[in-house]
């Protein structure tokens, strides 16, 4: 693996009573696409602003290329931020906006023009160099903001909710574009998002944050398949979560029965939560739990069925391929393999 570009160690930041970041430690590797994912208020934006230099931690250290980053003022950091609002300068045209950062480095005029033209071509906006930001569409503005940041060739590019202001179709397009661009320019990207689909589809690795703490750092697939705790299991993708006591042969849920799952010996006798993904849940006529179909949602490729099981306060979800034969109100049985479920501690 490549070596870490950024090392964040034990960073804490409080705003009055609110703990925005609590002892956050993580490493971002050279050339990777890294995502900070979490619900609003989890501290991800604070961490991003610390990397950009607009916020200072109360304690902890941040290094970039093994040099202290916190001692460097924002305008001297080899780090650029693409703002959520894009923050394009309204009194300058597209070319001027993009050239702004290069002019601050006092580069020769010819080189500036060359690099601006090159980046305009990269993002496909060559014809719009003379436009003002208010004459551009949302997607175009986003490209300009991106161009303005990458033209500086930063060591680290930060993107604050890069796709949140775009409508659905443009968003999917930009998502691909971002990935392509990251490969092309080879800059390390750190994206902040509350949208788990966005994080999972864009990033090589994702750090899940909640209430100022890092819950798990992993690649998208292990994050989905092996969530480290209850929060991650619930936050990433859809999941069926059932609480009970761990018995010798599964999770005992009062009024429901014993649910199949792998049982580590150390967990027996403790309270725990069972997690099983909807696509692992089978509907049938035999075995498992008896229930009544409460809702059927057809998505085209798949169908999601919600089944009310007596004794559970939330319906169990099952995702089946294609259309399904069950209908609202049908009696059915719900089952899954023990190996497809996992147990998580209740803390």
């Amino acid at each position: 693996m490549t070596e870490p570009l950024v090392r964040i160690e034990a960073v804490s930041r409080r705003f009055g009573e609110i703990r925005a970041l609590e002892q956050v430690s993580l490493e971002i590797r050279q050339g990777e696409f890294f995502a900070l994912l979490g619900p609003s208020g989890c501290g991800k934006t604070t961490l991003l602003r610390i990397l950009a230099g607009f916020e200072h931690p109360d304690s902890g250290s941040v290094t970039l290329d093994d040099a202290d980053l916190l001692a460097v003022p924002p305008h001297r950091r080899p780090v650029n931020l693409m703002f959520q609002s894009y923050a394009l300068f309204p009194h300058m045209n597209v070319a001027k906006n993009i050239a702004y950062g290069l002019e601050r480095e006092h580069l020769p005029k010819a080189e500036i023009r060359e690099r601006v033209d090159a980046v305009l071509a990269t993002i496909g906006l060559t014809g719009l160099a003379r436009r003002r930001p208010n004459q551009l569409s949302g997607g175009q503005r986003q490209r300009v903001a991106l161009a303005r940041a990458i033209v500086k060739r930063p060591r680290l590019l930060l993107l604050d909710e890069p796709l949140s202001a775009l409508d659905k179709k443009v968003r999917a397009e930009m998502q691909l574009e971002l990935k392509r661009l990251q490969h092309e320019v080879g800059i390390t990207f750190v994206v902040v998002t509350h949208d788990q689909e966005e994080a999972m589809s864009l990033a090589d690795r994702v750090a899940v944050l909640s209430e100022g703490r890092v819950r798990q750092i992993d690649a998208p697939v292990p994050l989905y398949e092996r969530p480290a705790d209850l929060f991650v299991a619930d936050f990433i993708g859809a999941n069926n979560l059932v609480t009970g006591m761990v018995g010798a042969d599964g999770l005992q849920v009062p009024g429901v029965g014993v649910l199949p799952c792998p049982v580590p010996a150390a967990a027996v006798g403790r309270a725990a939560t069972l997690a099983v993904r909807p696509e692992r849940v089978r509907l049938g006529t035999e075995g498992g739990l008896a229930g009544v179909v409460r809702d059927v949602t057809f998505f085209g490729g798949t169908t999601r069925v919600a089944v009310d099981v007596t004794g559970l306060d939330r319906p169990l979800l099952a995702t089946v391929a294609g259309a399904t034969a069950v209908a609202l109100g049908d009696k059915t049985r719900v089952d899954w393999s023990a190996s497809d479920a996992m147990l998580l501690g209740n803390d």
């Binding site: 305008h75 931020l81 923050a87 300068f89």
Partner: peptide, 27 residues
Amino acid sequence: VDGSLEEASRDLGATPLSTFARITLPS
């Protein structure tokens, strides 16, 4: 005025003084 304009200017390498002259005053 969007407050992040000034931050964007700092981020792109402008000193606080240059940011005031080039971004704050014009806007």
